[in-house]
Simulated assay, not measured.
Amino acid sequence: MTETPNPYIVDADTLTGEMRPIRRVVLALGSNLGDRMSCLQGAVSAIADTPDVWVTGVSPVYETEPVGAPDGSEPFLNAVVLVDTTLAAHRLMERALAIEDVYDRERTDVVNAPRTLDVDLIVVGDRRSHDESLRLPHPRAHERAFVLQPWADLEPDAVLPDHGPVVELLAALDGSGLTRRDDLELDLG
């Protein structure tokens, strides 16, 4: 199917004739409500179904004790997805929020509240953003073993911009609440 461009939307790439760059993106997934594994797999599939997004890797699944969550919160399942994309960072953020909404993510004022699905943009190429709606690289990724360990499994030589090599950041963290679940596996979508 051919898509006809909307004549009312001016795209700088269309004006210049230049190709949009392909950027490597790291997405972190988490779920601690409902069918956690189904939510994670659904997120991977939805990401893979996104136009101009190509899933290149999915990490092992980790079970994680909730960090800074309300008392009684259940453990999370976490994973990292690597993608290549030509989409802009804000479009990726919109897509991540839409995927969370499909899985009935409830947003509350409670910090680190339990959730059916969390889709975080960790890095989008070397893009930096300090907008209230989009912070890149993710401002707390360097403190989160549940992000760094699955990422290191996929890319042992990965570097978190402005913070350093992922394996070095991970070595400085307490990973005791993190358990690799080899009995659970996510498909590429």
Rank of each mutant, 00 (worst) to 15 (best):
R135V: 13
A98I: 10
E106H: 13
D35Q: 14
A152V: 03
T108P: 09
V53E: 07
D71Q: 13
L184R: 11
W54T: 13
D162R: 07
R36K: 15
V119S: 03
R127C: 12
N6T: 07
Y103T: 15
T14N: 13
T4R: 13
Q41F: 07
R105M: 13
R107K: 14
E132W: 10
T64S: 12
Q41E: 11
C39K: 08
Y103P: 11
L173S: 05
R180Q: 05
Y62L: 01
F146I: 02
V123W: 06
V26C: 04
L160Q: 04
L136V: 09
D162S: 12
L170H: 00
E63A: 07
T4K: 12
P150N: 06
G125S: 07
M19G: 09
H142G: 03
E65V: 12
G177W: 04
A172D: 06
L136N: 03
T85E: 03
D131A: 15
A89E: 06
L188R: 14
D157E: 12
P156W: 01
L178T: 02
V111L: 05
P5D: 13
C39L: 10
R135A: 13
L170M: 01
L148A: 01
V81G: 02
R127F: 14
N32H: 09
D52K: 12
E65G: 10
L186A: 11
D187K: 15
R23L: 09
V119Q: 03
V119G: 05
L117S: 12
P66T: 03
R140L: 05
I9M: 10
D101K: 14
W151V: 00
L186E: 11
V110Q: 01
V10F: 11
P7N: 05
I99W: 06
L188F: 15
V80W: 00
A69W: 00
S38H: 13
S59G: 10
D174L: 01
R23K: 11
T116E: 10
D52V: 07
R95K: 12
A28Q: 05
V44L: 13
Q41K: 09
D84A: 10
D84K: 14
A28N: 04
T56K: 08
P70F: 06
T85K: 03
A89R: 07
L170I: 01
V167I: 07
T56N: 08
H138W: 02
L148H: 00
L136W: 06
P137D: 07
R127Q: 15
L97A: 13
P66R: 04
R135W: 10
I99P: 07
R181L: 08
N6Q: 13
R135C: 14
L184G: 14
R95W: 10
L136G: 02
L148E: 00
S133D: 14
R140Q: 05
G34H: 07
R181Q: 07
A43R: 01
L117I: 15
V10A: 08
E74M: 11
E185S: 06
A141K: 01
T4E: 12
P21Y: 01
D109Q: 02
N6G: 12
N6D: 15
N32D: 10
A48W: 02
L186K: 09
D11C: 11
A46R: 08
V83T: 03
D11K: 10
F146R: 00
D13M: 09
V119R: 05
L160N: 04
V10M: 06
D104I: 15
L92W: 03
D13K: 11
S31E: 02
G164S: 12
